[in-house]
Nucleic acid binder design. Structure first.
Lengths: 348, 348
DNA sequence: GAAGGTGATGTATGCGCTTACAACATGGGT
DNA sequence: ACCCATGTTGTAAGCGCATACATCACCTTC
C-alpha cells in the first residue's frame, strides 16, 4: 500500500480533497473546525504532501537551484582526509550557505549541483527541470543550453561572464584591488609592486590585475604590462610563484600582491623558510578574505569578499523576477572591503 | 504559451509521446533513427523535461535531501563579512560537498536545508515531500515527525542520536580521543591531563570525553570524573576556558585536550599572549582536523574526521536501501586518524 | 418573506509524464 | 506459405494535487 494521499486524508476527515488541499495551501477560507479535522486526520495517517504532484498542478516547484564548478578530482574519492581540497572550495561554501538561508527565508528550498566544466550543460538542464529559478556560480555554460534554460526560467549569473538578457551579480574585483594597491602606494609609500595572477582565463583574477594596473595609473606610476608571475590560485602555486620570483635576478619588489589568499598564504610559508621578513623586507597581500587569512602569521592583508551576500542577492534577484518577468535585467556589483593587517605593515 | 512538453516534441518528431519518454528514460528500445528525430525536435523546441511530472508518474524524484543545523544567527544577515561564522559551519560544508558528489555519481541531485533546532520538524517534512531519501546531520528532530517521515522514505542519521530502525553513521569520537589521549600518555609521558568539553548536550563532545576517560583506564591512571572546563565549541569559548584554567590555583596540567579544534586554536592564542610555551610548558590538542589546525603556530595536534566521507557514506546507505527496503538497519562508525603535529611535541 | 450576497465546501478537469498493454512489422524456422 | 519470436511504436490510464466553477447554507436587506 502506498503512502497516504489527499484522498485518504479527505476520506478520513469526511471532507473533499479540495478542502484538504486548501488547508495546506491557504488555511483561511477553510473553517477552523474543518481545518482541525483535516489536520488531525493527516497526522494520524502520516500524510506528507507530494511535492511532485504539487509542482505539476501548480507549475512551480518551490525550489531554487545553484550550479557551481566541481573543484574536486573525481578520482580522489576517499582521499578526502586531505584538507587542501576543503580550502579550495571554500569560496563556494559560503555562497551555498548564503543562498540557502535567503531561499528559506523566501519559502524556497535549495537544490545544489556541482559540475565539471565539460558537463556543465547537462547538469544545468537537469537542474533546470527541477527548479523555479537558478543561479550559476563562476561557471561557463554552453550558450545554447543557457539560452534554452533561461527562456524557461529566471537565471542569475554569479561572478561569471556577462550574458545578454540575464541578471548578474559580480564582486568588485577591479575596485577592490585598485583600492588595496593604492593603499600600499599611498599609505606605505611602496612604488615597486608586483602582481601574481591566476590563469589567464580566470575573469576574477584578470579583473584584479586590471585594478592593480589602474592604481598605477591613478598614482602616476609606470603601468605594469602583465603579472610578474601566474599561479593557479592554489596554495602550492603561490608558494612556487614566490620562490620563482625570489630566484630571479635583480632587486626584490617592495610588495607582492597575489590574486587570492591561498596563493598569498603559500608565499608566506616560502618567505618564512627563506628568512625574508614580512612586511619588513616585503609586503604581501591576498584577495578574498578567507578565514585562514586572519590566522596566518603575519596576518594577511586582503580584500574581503561578501560571498554569502552573493548567494543572498541571487535569491533576491530571482524572487524579484518571479514577481515581474518583464523587469529590465540588472547587473549588480557587490562592494568589497579592505582588511588591513600585518602583512602590509598595518595593524599589530 | 507555456514551455514545450512531450506532446510538442512528439508532434514535431512525428511519433507518440511514449516514444519521446522512452528516449529520455532508456534510450535502448528506441531505434537509433527515431531517437535522433526526437532529440533534434526536442532541441529545436528547447524542451526540458519537467521533474515534477516525472516524479509524479514514476513515484521517485531523483533527489536526495540533507538537513543540517542552522548555525547562523537569523538576525545577522548582512554582517556575514565576519569570518567566524564561516569557521563555525565548516563541519557541515564538507559533509554537503561529500554528499553532493556521491549523490551526483549515483544520478541524484541534492536538496539541502538548514533549520534551527525548534523548526527542525517542519523543515524536515517539507524536505521529505521532495526527495527519495534523506540524511539528517547532527540534529534532533521531534520523534513523531521522524517517525512519519521515515515510514515514507529512507532516512539516515549522521552524527546524531541512535534512532531505532534508522540507518546511522557516526564518527569514531570515542575511539579517536582514546587513541590521541593514549598517545600523550604513552609517547610523551604526560600523566596529568585536562579535558575541555562542549555543552553537555553535545553527543560528540561527550563521546570524546568518554574516550579521554577510557584512556586513563587503559593506562591505569586515575579516572577524571568530569571535564576540567566546558565551552560551546567556538574559538572564543576555548580562549576563555584556557584563561580560566590558567587562573586557577595549583599547578598547570601537562596537557590540555579540547573537544574540538576551534576551541584549541582559541586557547593557543591565549597561551601565546601569556607567554606559555606550547608544547614546552603545556601540550595542546584539538579534534576535527579543520584546515586551520595546520596553519596555526604551533601546528595543532588533532584527530582528523572524514567529514566528506560522512556525506558519501550517507548516499551509499540510502542507495543500498532503495535497492532493498528490507535490509537490516546498519550503524556505521567512520574511523578517524591522528594528526600528530607540533602542539603535542611531535613533528617539527 | 423573497431577492441577493457571502462564505464554505464539493465536483471535475488537467498539469506532463511513465508504463502496462496492445498493435504492428519484421525475419527466421519449418 | 504459415507461425511465432523479437523488436519497435502507439494507446490509454493513471500518478497526487491545485483550482475554476458549481453548489449550498446561511445571512442580510428592503
Amino acid at each position: 500500500m502506498g503512502d497516504p494521499t489527499v484522498y485518504d486524508v479527505a476520506e478520513r476527515a469526511g471532507v473533499s480533497i479540495a478542502t484538504v488541499s486548501r488547508v495546506y495551501r491557504s488555511s483561511d477560507s477553510v473553517r477552523a473546525a474543518t481545518r482541525e479535522k483535516v489536520l488531525s486526520a493527516a497526522h494520524e495517517l502520516g500524510y506528507v504532501p507530494s511535492a511532485s504532484a504539487r509542482g505539476l498542478a501548480s507549475r512551480a516547484t518551490g525550489v531554487l537551484g545553484l550550479c557551481f564548478p566541481d573543484f574536486a578530482d573525481p578520482e580522489a574519492e576517499g582521499t578526502a582526509l586531505d584538507a587542501d581540497e576543503a580550502e579550495l572550495s571554500f569560496y563556494g561554501d559560503e555562497v551555498i550557505r548564503g543562498m540557502e538561508r535567503a531561499a528559506r527565508r523566501h519559502g524556497y528550498a535549495l537544490l545544489i549541483s556541482a559540475a565539471h566544466a565539460d558537463r556543465a550543460g547537462e547538469v544545468l538542464s537537469d537542474v533546470a527541470g527541477r527548479v523555479d529559478g537558478l543561479a550559476i556560480l563562476a561557471q561557463d555554460v554552453p550558450p545554447a543550453v543557457l539560452d534554452v534554460v533561461s527562456r524557461r526560467l529566471p537565471v542569475v549569473v554569479l561572478a561569471g561572464r556577462v550574458s545578454p538578457g540575464l541578471d548578474r551579480i559580480e564582486v568588485a574585483n577591479f575596485d577592490g584591488q585598485l583600492e588595496l594597491t593604492r593603499h600600499l602606494i599611498n599609505s606605505h609609500g611602496l612604488t615597486d609592486l608586483a602582481f601574481v595572477g591566476g590563469a589567464e582565463d580566470s575573469p576574477d583574477a584578470e579583473a584584479r590585475f586590471r585594478g592593480f594596473q589602474a592604481a598605477h595609473l591613478a598614482t602616476g606610476l609606470p603601468l605594469p604590462e602583465r603579472p610578474a608571475a601566474r599561479g593557479d590560485l592554489t596554495l602550492v602555486s603561490g608558494r612556487k610563484a614566490a620562490v620563482e620570483l625570489l630566484d630571479r635576478e635583480g632587486p626584490l619588489p617592495q610588495g607582492l600582491m597575489f590574486a587570492n589568499d591561498q596563493m598569498a598564504v603559500g608565499a608566506l610559508q616560502a618567505l618564512a623558510e627563506r628568512g625574508i621578513g614580512v612586511p619588513a623586507d616585503l609586503a604581501i597581500t591576498g584577495f578574498d578574505g578567507i578565514p585562514l587569512s586572519r590566522q596566518v602569521s603575519p596576518a594577511l592583508t586582503t580584500v574581503r569578499q561578501p560571498m554569502s551576500r552573493l548567494g543572498e542577492e541571487a535569491v533576491e534577484l530571482l524572487v524579484a523576477r518571479f514577481a515581474d518577468r518583464g523587469r529590465p535585467t540588472v547587473s549588480r556589483r557587490l562592494p568589497t572591503a579592505l582588511a588591513l593587517r600585518a602583512s602590509c605593515g598595518c595593524g599589530v
